[in-house]
Design a protein around this nucleic acid. Sequence first.
DNA 1: CTGAAAGCGCTAACAG
DNA 2: CTGTTAGCGCTTTCAG
Lengths: 346, 346
Amino acid sequence: MSEDNGSHLRLPDHRVGFITSADVAERAGVSRSAVSRTFTPGASVSPTVKRKVLAAADELGYRVNRLARGLISARSNLVGIVCADLETPFTGRLLSHITTALSQRGMNALVIEFSENEEDLRDAIIRILEYRVESIVMLSGSPSVSIIRECVANGVKPILVNGDTTVSGAFSVVSDDFTGAAKAADRLVAAGHRHLAVVASASSTPVQQRRTMGFVKRAETLGLTATITLNGPVSYESGVAGAHALFGTRLDQRPDGVFCTSDVLAAGFLDALRTTYGLQVPDDVSVIGFDDLPQAAWENYRLTTLRQNPVDMSRAILAAIRNIDGSADRSVVVDVTLVDRESVRA
Amino acid sequence: MSEDNGSHLRLPDHRVGFITSADVAERAGVSRSAVSRTFTPGASVSPTVKRKVLAAADELGYRVNRLARGLISARSNLVGIVCADLETPFTGRLLSHITTALSQRGMNALVIEFSENEEDLRDAIIRILEYRVESIVMLSGSPSVSIIRECVANGVKPILVNGDTTVSGAFSVVSDDFTGAAKAADRLVAAGHRHLAVVASASSTPVQQRRTMGFVKRAETLGLTATITLNGPVSYESGVAGAHALFGTRLDQRPDGVFCTSDVLAAGFLDALRTTYGLQVPDDVSVIGFDDLPQAAWENYRLTTLRQNPVDMSRAILAAIRNIDGSADRSVVVDVTLVDRESVRA
DNA sequence: CTGAAAGCGCTAACAG
DNA sequence: CTGTTAGCGCTTTCAG
């Protein structure tokens, strides 16, 4: 509140920088321990001392140094988050939810991005480890076993988000891609479609695989076969490519019910269908996406899609962080819900 | 490389956790200083000692504790990044570039999100300050003078990105919104449009204001008047609302050249134009957006827009971070380029 | 409830 | 080039 009006009561010698607990202690006429206790939730300090300390701290503009606190308590209150593709819509959203949730619990996110190759991931992890993070959340990439071991050796059990669920030594939080994709198949079949196809990315990430297989398997149990087309990264352009792959050739083999493993793919796919092939959605072809990105709700797409639930996911991630000492592997599968819009025939 | 095969040479008593430099020193048969020097770039160690230390460190899985290092050197190598809207496409992209650039310089990003109110921002800043960050980058929100003073008092000069350029006490990195918007006006007028309008968000952020005014002023100097419509937050829906505001009423007052202060706005605007009013772009109306989000390039929009350059921006931000001791305020304005697609009449 | 003292893991200043 | 000696700012026994 009060202005720091130059009356610095002896700043430590030549230093200009931060105010320390010693400064506050001196000003308040108490010991450093008293200051420490005042700022340690649940410590026992008399109201009188507390008040004096708080006043002095306020006047001086004192701020606990978390680095020092972390040094002694071995709790940095830092959580490392590594991801390869911050720009990816869903990753951004998830990160947003996680940082907010972390904040509410007094923790902070140390975010590192890496460029999707093993060596880079390793560097990122190591740097994060140097800050003695409480845990590491991997929002993308499939860390090798050696990297996971490295984390564990350093006392932090990694949390894999939408990663490979079969890896052991790590917590795992995933959306229920498999069931979600199956729902897509059901929906398409219920709408009367028999010529099924899936447009997926060629980057065979665990997510892509689960979604693709979830759809195909379900189609199989319904006695149907689904054509699969794999194109580039998860991008709009790959969706366009998927349309060409499926509709560019023999007219008699065209599918009428298509599942795209991501909304971005679906957007490209849909646009190409209209622009290049003059096809209407859902009149000529029904399309279902995955993720429920903001764009799925846009007028131009009105895409029926499977919604990943970032709120539940971040909740699960935070639960994993708190529970980090639980020695057993733990795997949380978060439900995915079908949101009906207008890209599937009624 | 080597497996940690249980031959721990005396781990500090009862502790199970991290390996310390003392452990390494003992194992390598040297002093702790030697270990420290080995891991300090540019320190003088003999190759022999270095090799021994490295070997021991590797066997033990030693990792420098940055918390402790930061404590003494007063350099945490941490940069705080606060933002309100990680989900916003451009913010995500910018964050991505910044974290990557930071990484390359051995620094790390402490990311905090806040919910756009003053009190929240303040809390975020304070938490970040507790980690003794080297500087604070504000990707959104317009911090009050008191908050900036708070930062400065704690020895970190904040870097405002796309914020209010008139605020003093902070570095400023902004896209050249004003000139960009003027370019939009020029482009529209060159295409023969005389009935100009701008669709902006009602959230009167500095960015929105600069873009709106840049367009209006330029129109004025060209002897034209531009209608302004302000609608909600920067969102797709607000773009739709903008279309209704402009085209829902008197037919004789409809603009034929519209500038949307963001691509998201433009997307909604454009879709509504087609869907609700049966208008063609650019045949009936020309539209220009801002930001050059990925969606602007999508088939369905092919939006002519002003590109914000995240690479140059992050470069400027990093320069500001390094130069943090330069006492004078500094303001960097990053160029914005018009990218021509097909939403403006030829 | 409070202060004194010890020490978290590291680096830096100082002799050798 | 190397080891010894002091702390960085904080928390935490341990006495009182």
